[in-house]
Amino acid sequence: MNAALLIARREIAAQFQSVIGYVIVAALLLLDGLLFHSFAMSDSKDLSSKVLAKFFYMSSGITGAAGILLSMRLLAEESREKTIVLLATAPISDWQIVFGKWLSAFAVVTVFVALSIYLPLLIVVHGSVHPGHLASGYLGLLLIGAATSAMGTFCSSITSHQLVAGVLGSVLLLVMVTTWWTAKVAAPPLDDVLAYMSFYDKHFLPFTTGEVHTRAVVYYLSLTFLCLLGARLALGARRWR
């Protein structure tokens, strides 16, 4: 675990020792703020809880995109610059490499999500926000951040081009998001399976209204685990491929 934390710390330091990390977080916050003021706060007659739900709705998209974008270079860049050999020959397991890399991306996503707290707090100025509603929404955002970072890490592990990894990750996310639509035209029992796999509609929407479902938590954690497992397999494949 120490080795994984070491890798994560190195990655985070690489982001924040230059200005890049701050630029990314600032850009994400700017986007979040613009959407918040343009859409969530646009209707002056909305109830506070509805405005908050809208905020989580939009923020989930930005958090998902941030997860993919921040993780797409993690392993792809190591492969492209051949530094993956250094990592592979170091006395650390593939799991530690993958987990450390993912953790670094997830940490930056968490920083962004945590900093965005000022937006829902603005609702308090002329409305009222229940702390439980805030907590559930932010739990949902963090789970989305964890899952999409893992997706990006997986895609990054199967290619040496970070752009390709980004595109693959986005497509994967899009497919997961639109499975609800596929579920509508599928026959039973496949429709239930597809509906359950829906990344957003089935699992995230309740978080936006203050509800936490254990199945949603299990789903996002499972997805994170499977993607990291996939990345670990892809990394380990160099020994037998």
Binding site: Q17, S18, V19, G21, Y22, V25, L29, G33, L115, Y118
Partner: peptide
């Protein structure tokens, strides 16, 4: 709200980053 938050907070993050750098 718009100027104080939407632009202000990202700007603060950026300034903090540039300062640290």
């Amino acid at each position: 709200w718009f100027f104080g938050t939407t632009l202000g907070v990202p700007l603060l993050v950026l300034l903090f980053g540039v300062g640290s750098h």
